[in-house]
Simulated assay, not measured.
Amino acid sequence: MIILMIHDWTYIFNNHQTAPDANLALEEYALRNLADRNYMMLYCNEASVVLGRNQNPLEEINLGFAYRNNIPVLRRISGGGTVFHHPGNLNFSFITDYKTDRLHNFRFFNEPVVQLLRQLGVPAEMNDRNDILADGRKISGSAQFSSRGRMISHGTLLFDAPLDQLDELLTVQNKDVHSRSHKSVRSRVANISGFLDQQMDISEFRTYLTEGLTGRSGLQDAWTPGEADNREVESLRRNRYTSWEWNYGRSPRFYIDRSEEISGYTVSMQLCAEKGSISETEFAVHDLKKNLNGETGQPEISRNQLQRTLAGISSLLVNKRYEPVTIMNTVQTCVSETLASTAQNPEKGRCASASQIARQISGLIYRLETDFTETPRQT
C-alpha cells in the first residue's frame, strides 16, 4: 500500500461505540480538549439522521418515516447539509490546528481519502461542492467547524448503506414550512462497495483507511479516553446531543401557512416558531365545504364551537414545543372542554367527535403521517 499522509495522525479509539450521540460528543470533546497534535477518528453509527448546525428538521427530513422507524434525529456542531448515518457508513473526522488555508479547504483533508479509494478501484473525485463522487454519484459529504485555534473537518462515506431508506428519510414532506435555514442539496448517491475491485466489509475498509492515513498498523499509538475524559464526554452527550433543545430547538425561526378541512369547514392556519417553540398561531374558519350538488352536510361541531376551540388552542400553544405529543395533548384538552360545555350532542357521539376533531386539528398544526401519541426516541 502507498502511504498518503497529510499529517502525522493520532488515531482516536472510541471503544467500538456506535451510538450517534456518544460519537458526536467524543468528536466535540476531542476538538475542544486535545490540542497537542493532529487527531483522526473513524467510526460507524447506528441508523440516525444528523443535521447541520443551522438546519431545520422539518425542511430536511421525512419525520413521519423517522418516527415510524425509530430513527433518532441529531444535530452536529458543524454547518453543511443533512446526512444519513448507518452501520453501513463510515464516518471520518480530522482535528488539527486552525489555519486560514485549511478552513473551507476540504481538498486539503479529503484528497488522501480520494487517493486511497482510487487504489481500491473506486473512480473517486471531488466536485466544487466538496463532495466525493464516483461516476458522478455522491459517496461522501463533508463539513467543518473551528473553535479556539482548533478545527474539525468531518464527513460520511457511504460504504454499504440502504439507499432506499436514505432516499425516503431525506425526502421532505413539509413543503409549506419556510425559514432561512441552510438547505441541503439533493444528489444522486451510490455505495463505495459497488465499485470495489476486491471483496471487503466495512470493518476491513476502516482498517484499510486507518493504515493508509496514519502509516501505522492497527491501533498502534492510538489515543484512548480515560475515566476523566469519559465523564466529560458523557456530560456533553447528555446535556447536548440527547436534548430536544439542541436537536430540535436549535432550528432557525420558521413559518407555516396551510389549510385543512376540519369537520366540514375549511380552516387556515398561520404559525410562527422560534427556538423550536411556538410563538404565534392564528386560525381562520371559512365556509362549510360543499358537495358536488352544491350542498353542505351537517357538521359534527358548530362554527362557533370550532372557533372557540381554535382560539383556546392558539392561546395555549404559545411557548409550547412544536412537537407532535405536546400539540396533540393541548388540542385534545381544548376540544374535549369545548364539546363538554354544550349539550348539543349525546355523550357517546360527543366523545367520538372530540377524538376525530382533535386529530384533524393536530394534523393541521403538525402534519405528520404517524400516530400522534408516539414519542420520538432520543438516544
Score class of each variant (00 low, 15 high):
1 M>R: 11
2 I>Q: 11
12 I>G: 05
17 Q>S: 12
25 A>G: 08
25 A>V: 04
30 A>R: 00
32 R>G: 06
47 A>V: 09
53 R>P: 00
55 Q>S: 00
59 E>G: 06
62 N>L: 08
63 L>M: 12
64 G>L: 07
72 P>E: 11
73 V>Y: 04
82 T>Q: 02
83 V>Q: 08
84 F>Y: 15
85 H>C: 08
85 H>E: 08
91 N>P: 07
98 Y>L: 14
102 R>L: 13
104 H>N: 14
108 F>H: 15
113 V>K: 05
113 V>H: 00
115 Q>M: 12
116 L>R: 06
117 L>N: 07
121 G>T: 11
124 A>I: 05
136 G>P: 04
146 S>D: 11
147 S>A: 12
151 M>F: 05
152 I>W: 01
156 T>D: 06
156 T>L: 05
156 T>K: 00
158 L>D: 06
161 A>V: 15
162 P>K: 04
164 D>M: 01
176 D>M: 09
176 D>V: 03
191 N>V: 09
192 I>T: 00
192 I>A: 00
193 S>V: 14
195 F>D: 03
202 I>V: 14
204 E>D: 14
205 F>H: 04
205 F>C: 07
212 G>K: 04
212 G>M: 04
214 T>C: 08
219 L>E: 06
222 A>D: 03
226 G>Y: 00
228 A>D: 12
230 N>V: 05
237 R>G: 07
242 T>K: 11
244 W>T: 08
248 Y>R: 06
251 S>Y: 01
251 S>V: 03
256 I>S: 04
263 S>E: 13
264 G>H: 03
271 L>F: 06
272 C>Q: 13
272 C>Y: 04
275 K>P: 02
275 K>G: 07
280 E>A: 12
288 L>E: 09
290 K>E: 14
292 L>Q: 14
298 Q>P: 00
299 P>C: 02
299 P>H: 03
300 E>M: 12
300 E>W: 12
302 S>C: 00
304 N>K: 13
311 A>D: 15
325 V>P: 01
329 N>F: 03
335 V>H: 10
346 P>H: 08
347 E>I: 13
349 G>F: 13
355 S>I: 12
356 Q>H: 11
362 S>K: 05
376 P>Q: 05
